[in-house]
Design a protein around this nucleic acid. Sequence first.
RNA 1: GCCGGGGUAGCUCAGUUGGUUAGAGCACAUCACUCAUAAAGAUGAGGUCGGCAGUUCGAUCCUGCCCCCCGGCACCA
Length: 478
Amino acid sequence: MTRYITTTLPYVNADPHIGFAVEILQADALARGWRLRGEEVFFSTGTDEHGQKILQAAEKAGKGVQEYVDHYAGEVQKLKDALALSPDAFIRTTDPKHIAAAQELWRRGEAAGDIYKKSYTGLYCVGCEAYKTEKELVDGKCTVHPALVLEEITEENYFFKFSKYQQQLLAYLAREESVVPEWRRAEARAFVEAGLEDFSISREQARLSWGVPVPGDDTQVMYVWFDALTNYISTLGWPDDTQGNFKKFWEEGKTLQVAGKDQVRFQSLMWQAMLASVGIKMTDQIFYHGFINSGGQKMSKSVGNVINPYDLVEKYGTDATRYMLLRHVHPTEDTDITWERLDDWYTANLVNGLGNLVARVMKLAETHLPEPVAIPEAGAFPEEYWRTIDAFEFHHAMDLVWARIQKLDERITNEEPFKVIKEDAPRGRTIIAEMAVELYWIARMLNPFMPHVNEVIKTAVKENKKPENLFPRLTPIA
RNA sequence: GCCGGGGUAGCUCAGUUGGUUAGAGCACAUCACUCAUAAAGAUGAGGUCGGCAGUUCGAUCCUGCCCCCCGGCACCA
């Protein structure tokens, strides 16, 4: 089976957020896990670069908008090395091919009779040069420009016939697999059952200049997310599909989107309706992760509790960061992360746990085994291991690994090979060899989660050589 | 108000699609110190699984009611 995995695209008006790091790591772990099982995977991610907010942020930073988005797109792309990601494609919504795809999707939606013009009335802030929703206002004023009076403006926009797809969406959501976790599917259903209103998908060019032009109407620009959602198929080469990736991975493969819990409406409803409109298969499965908080609050600059992915990598290293964000962040619930907890996990599970185990086993092996042990055949992972990965239970998959780590530690304590070797050398060597093989197994199971550590341990066992410390101890601050 | 999530060891959190001893890390106590990252290991103690009632041979897990915390209730993505 071929598989397609994609994340949502981060909006490039800030540095990469830890929440996105979690999302892309989950996607990466799945991609690596499924490849390990022998499946063909296409893993895509990228950046969302249009919209008035980005234009304003660029102006505020005193940069040209293209220069600005190039910079942040670069920051996101740096995550690939920092987090050891394995994407097959990186799509930017400013790519000409993507823009052409978004316009083609529009034309086909229009041809299907699902796009029409209607007047839209909203509260417009001249200072922000943007419409404001009631929720964004405090005392009826724009929070950024409280001195200005909001203008009620009416303009003609294009709308998408969302309401037409109520029944199709309900049928889609009836499939158990369509939304994970289960209760989010119920949420989505309740929303659809309550009735759907058509939504606007364009703005006047005069008010939203940084976006994809509406085909055949120079005065209008696509509203950001109509353009952004198209990325999931434009990255595969739709509509031309000269390389056949769209056919292979979207039409014939199993498609999976990974997104944050606030995305249900956009990904499972609006985007699916858009696909239905143009006659493209709906996404097979969408997995929604929870959010990361710190110290009981949302991370924010003003609170000063922001922990960003690059901080983690700098302090703990790439694989340790992957470990912590995949094992200790609950896949679907919100998780609270503090530096104290991170240090705790790092020391307990990696320094004292995995790292120390590798050191003690490989020291014994290197000292007492005349030659490397025979490496076990590939394949034959425990059933439970695949079950947890397929169910997006990354923390449980790793619990299985750590249970084996503890068992091996226990065995060393109980069987005392370092003592046995002195009294009965052949038996001592047998015990140590078995332990080296078990260590190799542990490494193999770490492949989707800690790709570098996976390699280092396997190499150590194959060469019968104790490696450098995998996880240096944190130096306590006096 | 409606919908949803959470309330599990001193702390931070997993888990249980009802079934003999509910798990991890930290902290604490004990053992060991010969293999291992000047520090790793093992063992143990510690929980009326938010409260009350019900269903059941049996409920932390199901049902009802109640209390506390958090999130959502459409064009910010």
